[in-house]
C-alpha cells in the first residue's frame, strides 16, 4: 500500500472508532445532567426503542442464506425453530445457539443428499 492508501485506512479506522465513542461521551454527559437514579429514564425514548429493533434487523439480515434456494430456506426455518424451542426450554444463551447450529447443520446435510 502506498502512503495515500495508508492514510485512507487510518482515516476510516479513526472515523469508525469515533462513531462508536462520541455517542457514548454525549450520552454520559446527558446522563450526568440527570440524577443518576433516573439514568434509564434519561435515555431518549426513541433510542431505547431503536436498540432492540437494530438487533432484530441484524437478525433479518443474518437469516438470509449464503446460497438462496428452497433447501437453504427450509434448513434456516428448521434451525430457527430449534433455536427458539431450545431457548424456551433453557432460557439461556449458549445452549440454544449450539442446538440451533447443530440442527441447522444436520438439516442442511440431509437436504443436500
Amino acid at each position: 500500500m502506498d502512503n495515500a492508501l495508508w492514510l485512507a485506512l487510518l482515516v476510516t479506522a479513526a472515523g469508525t472508532f469515533l462513531m462508536r465513542l462520541f455517542p457514548l461521551l454525549w450520552m454520559k454527559r446527558h446522563l450526568e445532567r440527570h440524577d443518576d437514579k433516573d439514568a434509564l429514564e434519561a435515555i431518549p425514548n426513541w433510542l431505547g426503542i431503536l436498540a432492540p429493533l437494530m438487533v432484530a434487523a441484524m437478525l433479518g439480515v443474518s437469516l438470509v442464506p449464503k446460497t438462496i434456494d428452497l433447501s437453504a430456506w427450509i434448513a434456516t426455518a428448521i434451525g430457527v425453530v430449534a433455536t427458539v424451542l431450545a431457548w424456551r426450554k433453557t432460557q439461556s444463551l449458549g445452549l440454544p445457539v449450539f442446538a440451533g447450529v447443530a440442527i441447522y447443520g444436520l438439516a442442511s446435510l440431509a437436504l443436500s443428499l
Binding site: 432492540p52 438487533v55 432484530a56 441484524m58 437478525l59 443474518s62 437469516l63 442464506p65 449464503k66 446460497t67 434456516t76 434451525g79 430457527v80 433455536t83 427458539v84 431457548w87 444463551l93 440454544p96 445457539v97 440451533g100 447450529v101 441447522y104 447443520g105 442442511s108 446435510l109 443436500s112
Partner: peptide, 22 residues
C-alpha cells in the same frame, strides 16, 4: 465448503436468542 455455512448460522441463532425475550 459446508463448514463455513453451517457455522455462520451461529449469528442468526444468537440474535434470535437475544430478541425473543423482547
Amino acid at each position: 465448503p459446508l463448514l463455513g455455512e453451517v457455522m455462520a448460522f451461529a449469528l442468526p441463532a444468537l440474535f434470535l436468542v437475544l430478541i425473543v425475550p423482547r
